[in-house]
Amino acid sequence: MLTTYIYDGSFEGFLSAVFTYFERRPKQVQIVQEKRYQPDAFAGVLTVTSDENQAERVWRGLKKKMSSQGLSTIYSCYLSELPCFEHILLNCIIRIFEDKRRVEADFSCTFMLQLSQIARKVGREKHRFEAFVRFEKQANGLFYAGIEPDFNVLPLIAPHFTRRYADQPWLIFDIRRSYGIHYDLQSVQEVHIAESKNRGNSSAKISYDDKEAQYQLLWQDYFRHVNIPQRKNMKLHRQHVPLRYVKNMAEIVNI
């Protein structure tokens, strides 16, 4: 019979569910996060509580069987939040633990291939947001950027921005997921702001640095003037900057 493990949606919770699987070894199992769970009359249900120790044991076990690169594909796959990711990850982890060989590079296995493909997608999104974040300087000196990435990339881009902007306070806010990362010249903290405060017309209330508008204007001018009209290629342009990202990018004004 199919058993459903429900977890709280955290990475730790997911790893705890994996731990529970290895403890009980049910024949058929699916791992589902709370908010996506839909009751099913024919499945047994078990709510797994997030357990730091269990999660760590699974992670340590994986470390022994994988490269650090491989480990990061697992984390990336979790951050993809794709509806099927638990299924793929669980199957990969089972294979990794049960095969005596190091199987992370077995791209003939559907699950391992899917894992690498999803991690690649997430990696692409991470790289995109290292590029597409546009800070606006506020009157209080804070550099603020709102983003709406397809995947939950904030944890992945935090180190990049911390290294780069060590001498300015900044906040990158994921509008869709209602949380952000804030750097205060010392360290990076996750911040959660009540949704109502950040949605909609809140931008009207933010007061910007005196020169912010000028720099945006200069940037838009620059962007227009480095273009070579004789080489116009909108298909390629769109391919590189898909429409869904454009609204938070200062240089692209009229679409």
Partner: peptide
Amino acid sequence: HSYTEDGR
């Protein structure tokens, strides 16, 4: 960081 209309 960005791509102009010529795709560069």
